[in-house]
Computed example of a mutant assay.
Amino acid sequence: MPTSRAPFVDVVAAVREHTSLLLGLTIGFTDDDWAEPTALPGWTRSHVAAHLVDGARRLIAVIESLGAERSTALHVDDDEERRSVEVLALASGLDLQISLDTSASELQEMLPALEGDTTPVVTRSGYTIPAWQIPLARLGEVLLHHMDLDGRATVVDLAPDTAVAVLAFQVERYAERPNRRSVRLVADEGYTADVDGVDDQVEVRGPAADLLLWLARGVSSPRLIRSWL
């Protein structure tokens, strides 16, 4: 199940655009808004923001290590990551916003240099990807956590090639999960993926961006059509 390719510069630009959209949402949050729960068990909006900050900082460290030929592992112990997020989530809303902005900006400046870099990187989920896919991984994280922060949103606007690329990237991660459901995804943009699972296969058709949200978060949009095979 190869990852579909989109122009690298387009993916990097999409990270910038959707990070800006996320920051445009969170800048209006009050401290009470930050304390609101999300659909992620046990996580408030502050935890989601802390997770994004922590992820950006770890990616920055990994990218810096590429040039120094040090370890390129982003994967950390679950307890260590949980402690880091819990500490960051205690910050005020203003401090969270500043940390989101500054960590994202620093990371964004480093992404263009990854074009064509095939150095293996172990993500914090334990998957190994080439370094050039780091922007794709970050884009998926920003898109999904934007949805977590704004539970009313059900649609993401992405260029077709970029939407297919980030969907294919997430499909590869989904295929490695234990006890996954059996799915066939048919994107309007011409991408199809089959993943065997533990139950009868469901086919879902629609735009690639909508399929991404359904696969990762179970978010249904009116543009999706589901049927059992």
Rank of each mutant, 00 (worst) to 15 (best):
A68D: 15
R5H: 11
R184M: 01
D95Y: 10
V53G: 04
F29P: 07
D31S: 08
I134A: 08
D200T: 15
V15Y: 08
R138W: 10
T19F: 09
D101A: 12
E106R: 10
H145T: 02
P37V: 03
V87L: 12
L212H: 00
L144G: 13
D199I: 00
T44Y: 05
L144Y: 08
T72L: 08
S4F: 05
A104K: 08
G67E: 02
I98L: 14
T38N: 08
A209V: 03
A168S: 11
L100K: 00
A208R: 08
G206Q: 01
S182G: 02
A165V: 05
L107F: 07
A131F: 03
Q170R: 14
S221D: 02
T38H: 04
D77N: 12
D196V: 11
S92L: 05
S105C: 12
V166Q: 11
A91H: 02
L212A: 00
R173L: 09
H75F: 06
D31A: 11
D31F: 08
L213M: 05
R5E: 10
L213E: 00
Y127V: 09
A168Y: 03
A208L: 08
L21H: 15
I60Q: 14
I60G: 14
A165F: 07
A89L: 02
R181T: 11
L107Y: 05
P37G: 01
L224I: 08
V122F: 07
W34I: 01
V121R: 08
V87Q: 13
V62S: 08
P207I: 02
G42S: 00
Q170F: 10
P178T: 06
E17I: 03
I63Q: 00
A73R: 11
L100Y: 01
V155A: 12
L215S: 01
V195S: 05
L96E: 07
V53I: 12
D196Y: 13
Q108V: 03
A50F: 03
R82V: 05
D32T: 04
L158T: 07
R217G: 04
P222A: 04
E109Y: 13
A91M: 05
A39N: 13
L23T: 04
T128H: 02
S103N: 06
G151Q: 14
D101S: 13
E141P: 02
V164I: 09
A153C: 13
V142L: 12
A153E: 06
R205G: 06
G93C: 05
V186S: 13
